[in-house]
Amino acid sequence: MRRTALALALPPAAAVLVLAGCTASDTTPPPAPAGVTAQAGSATSVHVMWQDPAAADGVRNYQVFQAGRLVRELPADKTMVDVTGLTPQTAYAFTVRARDGAGNTSAPSAAARATTPAARAEDHRAPTAPARTTGRPDGPRSATLSWTAATDDTAVTAYDIYQGGIRIHTAGPGETAATLTGLQPDTAYTFTVRARDGADNSSPDGPAVDLTTPPSDGQGPGTAPTGFSAAASPGAVTLTWTAPDTGRATTAYELHVNGRPVTVIQFGAGAVPPPGGTVEHRLTVAEPAGTVWVLRLRARLPDGNWGAFSADRRIVLAG
């Protein structure tokens, strides 16, 4: 188990997953990822996206292949990736495979193809920002965003959509609208759009658009980690909680101590808790015995927001 030193100002930490894995009899692979698309983002990069998995599929991570070669591996909550280090003016084909907790790997997805544009090494001018952005909720968990096309001295190659400072979607150069999924009911959002060119120069944010998703009759599972507990031992604190069941795996949690955020517990590939999975994380602490901490935790949701806080837990550090 990896440890994190905590002195009320923590660096990002790795987390350790403790859960009951699939049984040895689980030999059924998940379905191949659907809706795979590829869009050249620059002369040397392609943005690959695919649809969210169903919770019942039990997907733990994804593998992205180019011409049969593994180029990226991602946790289950990541359904987009920029594949970099490519060659300008070259055609590429990408496939994606899903893998579950028992190690069963899906068949390859349908191939998505993209051709990188010519390199423009001296291009340092960013595109203009989209001049207008509008949005509307389509229901409790989705919304449609529209924007006006940007301009560039060479060409716009992509539009990146941000929410809460997190990029949650990328659209192609000819697109001026996108449907965003994985949102939360009865939640206020602020979205912005940036244009990007073939040299990876990004525009400033376009005008922000605010919208609120409507409530849902069954609001769905809560977003707070449940069963949160903390146990002190000499020089350490062990945290345990159950991941919120948001339909997708959660890779980041923000830990608050005595009312202020002190670190983000970040999962790497292969250690991502599935929705409802039990997680354990150990902190190495330097504060003296007898120090009182009040701890609480919240998860980063698939829509880029932080979820609701867990219950507070009060502990006294051990000597």
Rank of each mutant, 00 (worst) to 15 (best):
P173H: 08
T157F: 05
Q184C: 13
T187E: 14
F191L: 07
A171M: 13
V193W: 15
R196F: 03
A171Q: 11
P173C: 04
D197N: 08
T176L: 07
T179H: 08
A149E: 14
A149I: 07
G164E: 10
G182L: 07
P140D: 06
T187A: 13
D160Q: 10
S142M: 02
T181N: 03
I166M: 04
S146N: 11
R141H: 07
T154M: 09
E175S: 08
L180A: 02
D186P: 04
T192G: 05
Y162N: 08
D160C: 08
A143V: 00
A171H: 10
Y162E: 08
F191E: 00
T181P: 01
P140G: 04
Y159N: 01
A188Y: 05
G139P: 08
S142W: 00
Q184M: 15
A150Y: 11
T170Q: 14
A188I: 08
L145G: 00
G172R: 12
T148L: 13
G139H: 06
D197I: 01
A158S: 14
A155Y: 04
N201Q: 04
N201R: 07
D152K: 04
Q184F: 15
R194P: 00
D186A: 14
V193C: 04
A188Q: 13
T148R: 13
T154A: 10
T151A: 10
G164R: 08
N201D: 01
T154N: 14
E175Y: 00
Y189A: 03
T151R: 13
T154V: 15
D153V: 11
G172M: 10
D153K: 06
D197T: 02
L183M: 15
D186W: 07
P185Y: 14
P173D: 12
A149D: 13
G172Y: 08
T181S: 03
Y159H: 10
D160F: 11
T154D: 15
A195H: 00
D197C: 02
T176D: 12
H169W: 04
D152W: 10
L183K: 15
D200V: 03
T181C: 01
S146E: 12
T179A: 10
G182M: 05
I166H: 05
A143P: 07
T170Y: 06
D160T: 06
A199V: 05
W147Q: 03
G182S: 09
Q184A: 15
Q163L: 09
I161Q: 13
T170W: 07
L180I: 14
T151D: 11
A150R: 05
R194C: 06
R194S: 10
L180W: 06
A171Y: 09
V156K: 12
I168R: 13
G174D: 13
P185H: 12
T151W: 11
T148Q: 12
T190L: 12
P173I: 02
E175T: 12
D153Y: 02
G174E: 12
A171N: 12
Q163V: 06
R167W: 03
R196H: 02
A143S: 01
A143N: 04
T151C: 02
R196N: 02
I166D: 02
V156N: 14
I166G: 02
R167N: 08
T187P: 15
D160I: 06
V156W: 11
A178S: 10
Y189S: 05
P173S: 08
T181H: 01
V156T: 15
Q184V: 15
A177W: 10
Q184R: 15
T187H: 09
